[in-house]
Write a protein that binds this DNA or RNA. Structure first.
Lengths: 240, 240
DNA sequence: GGGTATTTGTTCGTATGTATG
DNA sequence: GCATACATACGAACAAATACC
């Protein structure tokens, strides 16, 4: 039997039975009988589906429909970027430019359209960012939260997830690759300017604020010591 | 050994040895010895990596580093959208809105910046589109080519691939799901307007042209008979 | 075209680890 | 602790595809 077929038929089974995320799949013996294949073939198909985030396998417990998150996309993008970088390509810069292009286009549409509730939440995040900057603490957590919150107003879950996926991929690779020379004060200022610009309703100013922010990151990227050829003990992904 | 570890170590092997796309990987017996695992475990790890597009397995020939394309992302997005639709969500519409948001933001930056060579190629594509419309032929091929060519001028390979991936995912699901009521003449006009707007250098006009184009698709989506619950013989993916 | 070696595909049997009751 | 159910892992064998002589 073609192994590709097995994957297709399992996917079809999920769709046909309208199984939602978290629903239990048939056990391996049941799938063996249903698909008419051996245990190993079924397992290989399930492994492939698990890699795509379509199913979730819990040891000694069972197989379930996966959360349908974009985690596999992060995985793939991160590896692609990492491998490209080690081969001398500017893949990390390209990933950053991709984020910049998307966010610049979106923020201009967002200017002046955010509800007050979102704005106050964003303000709280910037406050927290500057607070942590003063303490010399890391800003990545708050940065992620800020960007996620910013585009929540677009009211498109898929779009939000895609943006977060790109954020995750970028920071995963950056963390494993370069020594970031952060300038916390500057980062805080950039985000406050983004917030103010969005609040003011000035699309052009908002887009410029985003581009300045990304320009800052890009500069840090060039200055950074791009030389950490390989350190053997980076296990940088626990399956989500 | 944990199966997750095997995947990580194979990925690490690719990165460490700087293997480019298409380079041969060790054979299964070699990997068994190198990783200290059984053949089944190695195969399951390879299957998972294959699903992520990181390796490519050719029967009776060998295992190779994959093309690092975004094909797995298309796969995952398409399934997620398909499953969501069958569960009553408006996932297909969300995917369309994602494309619209990205293209609208990008095309405004593109207006007036495309080299003459690209513009003539785009014009040729629109001609071909109207030609095929007159013959009653399908427009999907030329539509894909148009959108791909349009954003080539951004000079970011990753961004282009992401856009094409979203295009592919959307059309894959649409094809399997709805009866498209195409209005070829209208589609042709919309694309000519996009081209003219981009050539004119008017950002606002270009963005409006894109939004009109997507608005047209959205309308067709709502009108379409959304009822093709399941036809058993759709094997809609050959691994790339 | 045929034969053989190499490589991946598929199957079976068996033992082990893990969570539930 | 014990029994059950399930996933995990290993080893061995044969089938199918491909390359090379």
């Amino acid at each position: 039997m073609a192994a590709r077929d097995l994957q297709e038929r399992i996917k079809k089974l999920i769709v046909d039975r309208r199984l939602p995320s978290g629903a239990p799949l048939p056990t391996e013996p049941e799938l063996m009988e249903f698909l008419g294949a051996s245990r190993n073939s079924v397992r290989e198909a399930l492994k492939a589906l698990q890699a795509m985030g379509i199913v979730e396998i819990r040891h000694g417990f069972g197989t379930y429909v996966g959360p349908m998150s974009l985690a596999p996309m992060v995985e793939g993008l991160a590896f692609r970027t990492l491998a490209g970088h080690h081969r001398g390509e500017d893949s990390l810069l390209q990933l950053l430019e991709l984020r910049e292009a998307m966010e610049a286009g979106l923020v201009s549409r967002l200017a002046g359209r955010l509800p007050e509730a979102d704005l106050t939440e964003l303000a709280a995040l910037v406050d927290r960012m500057e607070e942590r900057a003063a303490q010399g603490a890391g800003l990545t957590e708050t940065d992620r939260a800020f960007h996620a919150m910013l585009y929540r107003g677009l009211d498109n879950v898929l779009l939000s997830e895609v943006l977060e996926a790109f954020w995750d991929a970028f920071h995963r690779v950056q963390r494993d690759l370069v020594e970031v020379a952060e300038e916390p004060r500057v980062t805080g200022r950039r985000h406050r300017e983004i917030l103010d610009a969005v609040r003011s309703g000035d699309s052009i100013r908002a887009e410029k604020a985003i581009r300045d922010h990304f320009g800052n990151i890009r500069a840090r990227l060039s200055d950074a010591v791009m030389t950490r050829p390989q350190d053997p003990h980076t296990h940088h992904n626990e399956r989500v």
